[in-house]
Computed example of a mutant assay.
Amino acid sequence: MPENSPSRLDLLRFLENVQVRDLQRTRDWIATEEQHQALETARRPAPPPPEWLIEHGIGTGRLPARVHTGQCWDTRTHCKPATADQARRALAEGVSACPHCRPDTTLGLLDRGRHVRSRCGTRR
């Protein structure tokens, strides 16, 4: 090699610098694309809440514990969306109705001739 040409080590360091810049440019493109995707996701309307929820217990088997309307404030993390037919079926099979949102009343499953005791013990 002529005396004034760069050494092998200098050439390898130059190559490393080029690759580091290319890697940074690729990372910048990725970050830009992630921002675009986040904006697109934020622009999409949120899906409507489910009309009915079935709350499941914890542990093995996770059996249904209560039925709720979709707007109930007393739902927990173990709820799954349900159709009106699934909610009716669960109530008919003995799953408890939430005492706060009263899905059994909303679904028309209460016998209108029977009096139901409210939480304070008075008849309605």
Rank of each mutant, 00 (worst) to 15 (best):
L53H: 02
R88T: 01
R21Q: 13
R102D: 12
R44Y: 08
N4A: 07
W52K: 00
D74H: 14
I30Q: 02
R13Q: 13
H56T: 00
Q24L: 11
R123S: 15
G121A: 15
R114Y: 11
R25I: 02
E55M: 14
H36Q: 14
Q19I: 06
A38K: 06
W73D: 06
E40G: 03
G59S: 13
G113D: 15
G61K: 01
C79R: 01
W29G: 06
E51R: 15
R114C: 09
R66N: 01
T77P: 01
Q37S: 10
F14P: 00
T41S: 11
Q35D: 15
R62K: 15
R119P: 00
D111L: 09
G108H: 07
W52V: 00
R8F: 06
H56V: 01
A46S: 07
R43K: 14
G94H: 10
A38N: 04
T26I: 12
R62Y: 06
R43W: 10
E51P: 05
R21P: 01
L110P: 01
T106K: 13
C101S: 12
E3K: 11
Q24M: 09
R89P: 01
A87C: 04
V95W: 10
T69Q: 03
L9Q: 15
L110C: 00
P2D: 13
E93S: 09
R102Q: 15
D111N: 15
S7N: 07
R66I: 00
E3H: 10
D74N: 15
E51V: 03
L91A: 04
Q24E: 12
M1N: 04
P6K: 05
R25H: 06
L12I: 09
A46R: 11
D28Y: 03
Q19E: 13
L110T: 00
E33R: 11
H78E: 14
D28Q: 10
V116T: 09
R112M: 03
Q24S: 10
P47N: 03
R8M: 10
R124T: 11
T105H: 10
I30M: 11
A84D: 07
R62G: 12
H56I: 00
R13W: 03
G57F: 12
R88Y: 02
H78Q: 14
G108S: 06
R8V: 07
R44M: 13
V116N: 03
V20M: 04
Q37V: 12
D104R: 01
S118T: 05
L15P: 01
A31F: 06
P2F: 10
A46L: 13
R89S: 12
S7Q: 08
L12W: 08
T26Q: 14
L109E: 01
P48M: 07
P45Y: 05
G94A: 04
L39C: 11
P103L: 07
G113M: 11
A38R: 07
A92H: 04
R89L: 08
R124F: 09
S96Y: 14
E33T: 00
R102C: 04
G59N: 10
D111S: 05
T69E: 02
